[in-house]
Design a protein around this nucleic acid. Structure first.
Lengths: 209, 209
DNA sequence: GATTAAAATATATCGCGTTATAAATAATTG
DNA sequence: CAATTATTTATAACGCGATATATTTTAATC
């Protein structure tokens, strides 16, 4: 209700930006940020630099984003959208539910392994306090897309599992996949096996056990 | 070879600190840091403040640690030592291999969930660049202790798995456990189930599949 | 005590995220 | 046009991590 303050008719002075205009400015800043953060890392880009490359001043940045981390958070949604768009395309090319589950599980881990810079951008962003991180995927548009895993797993299990068991197993699978990506990326010194074998074993673990 | 530069006999001037002396100073700084980082978080403590509480100047800190993050890294080893000491104590109280595996898996996740501040300190430390993180558990003294999982799993599987399969499964289990802790801590807004159920399902996945 | 070399300090500087404040600019209405 | 109001800019400031440089203190030998 009353999402954007209505401008009273006959009001004087410069009108406030509409929601659309605000999002246009944000999108422009975010585009610069995505480019810069990927090239030189989140911590490597200063607000002064981002302002310069965005063609505005630091104070304008702070008008559209309360803190630097909020710029980053704006990019997370884009990254997850890209990821799940890719996974759904991948899944649509497979015939059986089992193949689809394997494909998206592999695709999920492969996505992050191929985009370590973005993984760090999303999961390990520097200068992040505990409270910042706990809301890192609070956005419903992001969270809801993880339902792809639950739905695909449901098809594979058929009637073998009730709702509760299905929920548990799909969440376990997600934890395992995130854990595989997390460990392989952050503990890179360790001689990990082929990620495909880990993912296949993880999938086997939830559909057979 | 020639680990510490030998002081030439008859040398003039104040002798350089021995390795032992250096480690004593580091230990003193690290003690202050562990206390302060836990109380107010890594990002919340400045080098100026750490120097003050350690009874030295900022420049002295930088003599013993090249960067602030290196102080933190020094604490990681202590945290893992505490974790695995606890896990081994837990395991020793159980009779069967299966019980031990369950216990250490549960204990591993429970340890981090009960020490979220330390989890962030170890796995999500702020101001960390990609290269910093890739060596975060490179320390052999830390890495070797993860062997506990492999050995315990070997007992459970008995002769059912060859070396390669045992390696794969123990690494998958570790990925899953880290993933469970990681997700439950960082995506705290999501209504996760009881971590015990996730861990039990993860263990079941590697011993039955 | 004099000499020497290392440890430790003192001080200044840099760019950083962030905030505050005042001024300039732009877009509207009368 | 003037008046009004929001956006944007300009500038300074704060504590931060980090670095550089010069000085003082300390612990050893002669």
């Amino acid at each position: 209700m009353n999402p954007a303050k209505e401008r009273k008719k006959g009001a004087r002075g410069r009108p406030a930006h509409t929601q659309e205009q605000i999002e246009d400015v944000r999108a422009k800043i975010a585009a610069s940020a995505m480019k810069l953060f990927q090239e030189e890392g989140y911590a490597g880009i200063s607000m002064r630099r981002l302002a310069q490359e965005s063609g505005c001043t630091v104070m304008t940045l702070y008008k559209y984003y309360a803190r630097k981390i909020d710029v980053l958070r704006d990019l997370w949604g884009q990254v997850f959208a890209e990821l799940f768009d890719e996974l759904e395309r991948t899944a649509s090319r497979k015939q059986t539910a089992h193949e689809r589950l394997q494909a998206i599980a592999l695709g999920y881990v492969a996505f992050w392994l191929a985009r370590r810079d973005r993984y760090f951008m999303v999961f390990m962003s520097s200068g992040v306090s505990q409270s910042d991180v706990s809301v890192f995927v609070q956005d419903d548009r992001v969270l809801s897309r993880f339902g792809l895993f639950r739905q695909t797993l449901a098809k594979v299990l058929g009637g073998q599992a009730d709702e509760a068991e299905l929920t548990l197993k799909s969440e376990l699978l997600l934890c395992a996949l995130n854990g595989i990506a997390h460990n392989l990326i952050t503990i890179s010194a360790y001689p990990w096996p082929d990620p495909k074998r880990l993912v296949q074993a993880a999938v086997a673990g939830v559909i057979k056990a």
